[in-house]
Amino acid sequence: MVAQDDDCPAQCQTTREPVRPALSRAMDIALSLMVLTVIALVFGGVVLWRRDGYRKQATLMFVLAAVLAGNVVIWVAPTHEGKTLTGEAAKASGTPK
């Protein structure tokens, strides 16, 4: 709730956050789904690894999990300048991240 001018002094007034554009929300959702997929792939790979005859499929699941995890790291890890790809995408879409 936004405070009214009469209710409190200027120090306690809050402002509303700007609405985030769809690109930024979509990026957050995509990265979250990728992390959940990595967890599911690793869990499934462990289950298949324990079964006889499914080692090849389990290995492929581990490889895919590693590729997805690498993509997430690329998008969220800061560079030596402190910038991330998600932050740069948010700037390009018009909102600070």
Rank of each mutant, 00 (worst) to 15 (best):
M34F: 01
A30G: 02
L23C: 09
L41H: 00
P21H: 02
A30I: 04
L31M: 04
L41Q: 00
R25W: 14
A22G: 10
E17S: 09
L23Q: 11
A40S: 11
T37Y: 01
R20P: 07
T15D: 11
T15S: 14
I39G: 09
T37W: 03
T15H: 11
E17K: 07
V19W: 07
A40R: 09
L33H: 15
V42Q: 03
P18K: 03
L33Q: 15
V35Q: 05
A22F: 08
A26P: 03
E17N: 10
P18S: 05
S32R: 11
I29G: 10
L31D: 00
V19D: 10
R25K: 15
L36W: 10
A22I: 13
V19E: 13
V42W: 02
V38F: 00
E17T: 13
A22S: 12
A40Q: 10
T15L: 13
S32I: 10
P18A: 05
V38Y: 00
A22C: 13
L23K: 06
S24D: 10
L33V: 13
T14R: 07
L23T: 10
T14E: 05
I39K: 13
L36V: 12
P21K: 00
S24W: 04
I29V: 15
A26I: 05
V35P: 02
Q13N: 05
C12M: 09
V35D: 06
P18D: 04
L31Q: 01
A30Y: 01
T15G: 12
L31R: 01
S32P: 06
C12K: 08
S32N: 14
M34N: 06
T37I: 03
A26M: 09
S32K: 12
P21S: 01
V42S: 02
L23F: 04
R16L: 10
A40L: 09
V19H: 09
T14S: 10
V42R: 03
A30M: 04
A26E: 07
C12Y: 12
S32F: 13
A26Q: 08
A22H: 09
A30K: 04
L41K: 02
V38P: 00
T37G: 03
T37V: 04
S32T: 15
